[in-house]
Simulated assay, not measured.
Amino acid sequence: MPAETLSPASTTSFHVQRSLRHCLSSVAELMYESGHVLETLTLAQRGLSRQELASLSHQHSRWSLCQRVLEESDAATFNEYGRFVLTPLGRELMFDMFGQGAADCA
């Protein structure tokens, strides 16, 4: 269904999901370029340290914006170890986009 025929609430949801998917795709690309694997984000017990986040942000101008979008949409958060990981929502979208190998859904 085209965005212009959706209700205002559906249109907002459509744009949020599109933005999330775009950011997840960008994050996957930027992590790969920096030598990281997707499982670093998709496994709740792993994650990126604040130092690694700062490095990614310094290396890639898009990183900070995508990180903020993921956090504000509850697709990513900091785990109990203070490391940046995807939430169940983020993992579900990542799995949807890249397949089971990209996200720990077991």
Results as ranks from 00 to 15, higher is better:
Ser10Trp: 06
Glu80Gln: 13
Leu41Glu: 04
Ala44Met: 08
Ala3Val: 14
Thr77Arg: 12
Asp104Gly: 09
Glu52Lys: 09
Leu38Gly: 13
Gly101Pro: 00
Pro8Tyr: 03
Phe95Asp: 13
Arg62Leu: 15
Ala9Ser: 13
Met1Ala: 08
Arg83Thr: 10
Val27Ile: 15
Arg21Thr: 12
Leu30Lys: 05
Gly35Asn: 07
Met31Ala: 14
Gln45Asp: 14
Thr40Pro: 00
Val37Ser: 12
Met1Leu: 10
Glu39Trp: 03
Ser13Gly: 03
Ala44Trp: 10
Arg46Ile: 00
Gly99Phe: 04
Thr5Gln: 08
Arg21His: 02
Gly35Leu: 01
Phe14Trp: 12
Ser19Asp: 15
Thr12His: 10
Glu71Phe: 02
Asn79Asp: 10
Leu89Thr: 09
Leu30Gly: 02
Ala9Ile: 13
Phe95Pro: 00
Asn79Gln: 05
Asn79Trp: 07
Arg68Trp: 13
Leu48Trp: 11
Ala106Ser: 15
Val69Pro: 06
Glu52Tyr: 01
Ser26Pro: 00
Thr12Met: 03
Val69Phe: 06
Leu6Asn: 01
Leu20Gln: 08
Tyr32Asn: 12
Gly99Met: 06
Gln59Arg: 15
Glu92Ser: 15
Gly101Leu: 07
Arg46Asp: 08
Leu70Arg: 02
Ser25Val: 08
Thr5Met: 08
Gly35Cys: 06
Gly99Arg: 07
Glu4Leu: 08
Glu39Pro: 00
Val37His: 13
Ser49Phe: 10
Ser64Arg: 15
Ser19Gln: 10
Thr77Pro: 00
Ser61Lys: 11
Met94Ile: 08
Gly35Val: 05
Arg62Phe: 06
Leu53Thr: 01
Ser49Gln: 02
Ala76Lys: 01
Leu89Gln: 05
Ser57Met: 06
Gly90Gln: 10
Leu65Gln: 13
Ser73Lys: 04
Pro2Asp: 12
Met31Thr: 11
Pro8Met: 03
Ala54Met: 09
Leu48Gly: 06
Leu20Ile: 13
Gln59Ile: 01
Gly47Arg: 04
Leu43Cys: 10
Val37Met: 07
Asn79Arg: 04
Asp96Thr: 15
Leu38Glu: 11
Glu39Asp: 09
Arg46Trp: 13
Ser10Thr: 01
His22Lys: 05
Leu6Val: 02
Arg83Ala: 03
Val37Arg: 11
Ser26Asp: 14
Glu71Ile: 15
Ala103Asn: 06
Tyr32Leu: 12
Arg50Pro: 06
Ser25Leu: 08
Thr77Ala: 15
Leu48Asn: 07
Glu92Cys: 10
Leu53Gly: 00
Leu48Asp: 08
Gln17Cys: 00
Phe84Asn: 02
Ser10Asp: 15
Arg68Val: 10
Glu92Ala: 15
Gln67Cys: 12
Glu39Gln: 09
Pro88Glu: 15
Arg21Val: 11
Arg50Cys: 04
His15Met: 03
Glu33Thr: 07
Arg50Val: 06
Asp96Gln: 15
Ser73Asp: 04
Cys105Tyr: 12
Ala106Pro: 13
Arg46Cys: 04
Ser13Tyr: 03
Ser61Met: 11
Leu48Cys: 09
Phe78Pro: 02
Val27Gly: 08
His15Val: 09
Gly99Val: 02
Ala103Arg: 03
Val27Leu: 09
Ser57Lys: 05
Glu4Gly: 00
Cys23Ile: 02
